[in-house]
Amino acid sequence: MTDRLAALGRFGLSAIASLGRSGRFLAGTLIGVPKPLTGLPLLARQIYSVGVLSLAIVVVSGLFIGMVLGLQGYTILSDFGSEAAIGQMIALTLVRELGPVVTALLFAGRAGSALTAEIGLMKTTEQLSSMEMMGVDPLRRVIAPRLWAGFIAMPILAVIFSVVGIWGGMLVGVEWLGVFDGAFWGNMQSSVDFVDDVINGVIKSVVFGFVCSWIAVYQGYDCVPTSAGISSATTKTVVYSSLAVLGLDFVLTAVMFGNF
């Protein structure tokens, strides 16, 4: 019994210590913006690998999710004879929830795991150490561009996801099932508010982007430098990012949309 208590205590302490380490790591990364001349090309390269290369999976997922929403929405709403509200339903679901959340989950799986593995491997092969010994701070040179790239790419991906999803929903609802397209767009426009819905959705994805890339680069940087260490760090990235996104989504939703 005391053994278990002790183990629980140890686990709690190491969890708090790990949180503290990740906080210090974040501070070390963000303090001191990289030199603009060398920093921008590095940032562009990272936005490319984190954002542009995730575009395909985001577009395809967005399209299918939008189409499924169209089909499901139509079956349910046509029972009440209000299938014209389908546009409103699709747009609100995507812009407020599915856009930011699903994009963040895809991002964690596609880009976050790659980030962790890349940084973990750089650590294992002593590339980070050798950079330090060359008088270059790896936090600023390697970590900071990746963190910022995730932060910038995520909202862009989420917005593209929502647009493609709405287009997919329109494809199913208007083109196949014959909902009148004036009513489709009209209902959508009268119910979606730019600031309350669209901007709040973007804020959500900015938060998710930050948290996901933070977790990914931290797990890579903090991993045990062996192949088993990298694999467990990659798993942790996906698991922690997904949980963090879903948990934060609840909190953010409660704050943004909870007052009615």
């Binding site: 092969t125 002593e126 060359m134």
Partner: peptide, 17 residues
Amino acid sequence: YHLRERMGMLFQSGALF
């Protein structure tokens, strides 16, 4: 970091980028 600019280190694995 300034001092390190005056040092070189050859790692066991080479540690090339």
